[in-house]
Nucleic acid binder design. Structure first.
Lengths: 122, 122
DNA sequence: AATAAATTTATAAGGATTACAAATTTATAG
DNA sequence: CTATAAATTTGTAATCCTTATAAATTTATT
């Protein structure tokens, strides 16, 4: 938790594992999984995935979206104020979790010549 | 593609495989993966994931969000008109893909007595 | 009908996550 | 301080989804 709060990025389990193991050499991957699972259940971290493969963990549990630059891989946070949740709740839906995920080019990569003609990637 | 268009739901690779194999007994899972990959590259299907694990495929490529009922598992489509994409593009970001994902209880399950005190699950 | 090209299949391999029992650490009681 | 119980941590194996790959099959071409 301390690591997540200090870094304020969106690390994978493996990234957390490799960093923490420098100070806790006996640390196992399983312990990282267990700890993150506990923190998730406690509502202290928010997991999400942008590739349907590995899970990213976010210590920022306030409502926000994630933008992933498909060129550099960086993930940017952005504010979200969607009317969708309210709209859908009017119809009898109860929502308690939301992810707004965007993919594209960040301002830095959008300027790069090699990204000129990238229109869409899936 | 025909299957996806006729069903209009959000099947997993395995669901597609199992249904199609009834008519094409020699069909392999790999072929389903290959076909979906080709369709995705052609922009005819939209993959997404709500559990960070298996990928769901959607023949509806128009902009919309997905609501997943965590009790019955059903996935509902809903309209999305977010200002986020425009906001973020003003800052120099170029977006070409977006997922808006909601989790909660659908109207049917929200009424069920066993769902009374479900406030949040992760 | 023979050969080349493309597609499909089956199997293995990869990577993230979970299951689980053994080992270790921490807490409790005498 | 020990001895014992409880809890945590570790390491390994198992699981699940997906991708890699080469053989087999099908389709196209000559």
């Amino acid at each position: 938790m301390r690591y997540l709060e200090e870094m304020r990025d969106h690390p994978t389990v493996d990234q957390i594992y490799k960093v923490l193991r420098r100070r806790l050499p006996s640390l196992s991957r399983t312990s990282v999984y267990n700890a993150l699972s506990t923190l998730r259940e406690a509502g202290l971290v928010r997991p999400f995935s942008m590739d349907g493969n590995e899970t990213l963990y976010d210590a920022n549990i306030l409502d926000h979206g994630h933008f992933r630059c498909t060129h550099c891989g960086r993930i940017y946070d952005f504010d979200v104020k969607l009317p969708e949740a309210e709209q859908i709740e009017l119809k009898g839906f109860k929502t308690y979790r939301r992810d707004v995920l965007l993919w594209g080019l960040c301002p830095i990569c959008a300027e790069k010549p090699e990204c000129e003609n990238i229109k869409s990637i899936n």
